[in-house]
């Protein structure tokens, strides 16, 4: 009896260890596979030129990624400018001011926001954000635009990163000990002064980590952005211009026109770029968050 139990234990141990090993090797496999696939392009052009060249014309053999990098950065920046202040203020309100009842009814709603699939954000973007920009916002600035623009993509992305930022910041704020707040309040500071000087200062690493995670989410978001950003491979000069972020490039062209030399390799290279940037950003954010967690738990 005992030997059977121990045997079972061992079987579970070994098979689950194997699963762990296999699934972890997915990362390695992804990285290597992407490098392997993008190698032909990297051999024909220098990395620096690929990243700084402006012209994208696969038919003629020009593979300049700058428009896509610029598109990604533009869209992400707009999203952050909208989302970061809103998320910090909301998170502070929820943890410091809101009653328990209100907090417990708002946080689940934010979870719903997190659960909505990207394509639904895209639908909202196409049906609501794009026309709104075309009809109301652009005319204020005297600009004519189709609405499919960096701004539209930025707004949609901002809403998409609300949940991840708010939930992390709320968690970080909740780890700040009450004694610290009490100390500041008892010195005669108002609640807002306490928040400004004590709470936000303490929560800074957490807020930075949340922002980094949000950036990597924004970099990788494909469908919702693709649906509203206009997809023109030119460097955008205003937020009302169309943009063309990297993920959209992959999604729009993958599996098609594979007969053009180096085209597949170029698309794989853009996937590699995404993979590398997001790997790095996630790594940094997780290290910060794990540090924070350990600090407060032990």
């Amino acid at each position: 009896m005992n030997t059977i139990r121990l045997l079972k234990d061992k079987i579970v141990r070994n098979s689950s260890a194997l699963l762990l090993f296999l699934s972890l090797s997915v990362v390695v496999f992804m990285g290597l596979g992407l490098v392997y696939k993008s190698w032909p392009l990297l051999e024909s052009e220098s990395l620096f030129r690929l990243l700084t060249e402006k012209i994208w014309s696969p038919m003629k053999g020009y593979f300049g990624f700058l428009p896509f990098i610029a598109g990604t950065l533009a869209v992400t920046t707009v999203a952050l400018i909208i989302a970061v202040p809103l998320c910090i203020l909301t998170a502070v309100y929820l943890t410091e001011y809101a009653s328990k009842g209100l907090r417990n009814s708002i946080l689940p709603l934010i979870n719903v926001l997190a659960a909505l699939p990207p394509v639904l954000y895209g639908v909202w973007g196409v049906l609501f954000v794009v026309p709104m920009i075309k009809e109301y916002i652009a005319p204020i600035f005297g600009v004519e635009t189709s609405g499919y623009s960096v701004l539209a993509a930025g707004i949609v992305l901002a809403v998409m990163i609300f949940p991840i930022m708010i939930s992390i910041i709320v968690e970080v704020l909740q780890t700040i000990p009450d004694e610290l707040k009490a100390a500041s309040l008892s010195l005669g500071a108002t609640k807002w002064e306490t928040i400004q000087h004590i709470i936000l200062a303490k929560a800074k690493p957490g807020i930075i980590a949340a922002t980094v995670l949000a950036i990597s989410r924004a970099f990788g978001e494909t469908i919702a952005v693709l649906m509203v950003c206009g997809n023109i491979p030119k460097i955008p000069t205003s937020i009302f211009d169309a943009g063309y972020p990297i993920p959209a490039l992959i999604a729009n062209n993958f599996g098609e026109m594979m007969s053009i030399p180096l085209y597949e390799s170029a698309l794989m290279f853009s996937a590699l770029l995404l993979f590398a940037i997001i790997f790095l950003f996630n790594f940094i954010a997780r290290i910060i968050l794990n540090r924070l967690e350990n600090k407060y738990n032990g």
Binding site: L24, V26, V27, F29, M30, G33, L34, K37, L213, S216, R217, F219, G220, E221, T222, P247, I250, A251, F254, G255, L267, M268, A271, L274, F275, I278, F279, F281, N282, F283, R286, I287, N290
Partner: peptide
Amino acid sequence: KLIYDILYGIPSIVYGAIGFS
């Protein structure tokens, strides 16, 4: 655990590209 956290953050388009290959 760190790697799973990172894998969680890798966008699905990259998974798609890999899956396609």
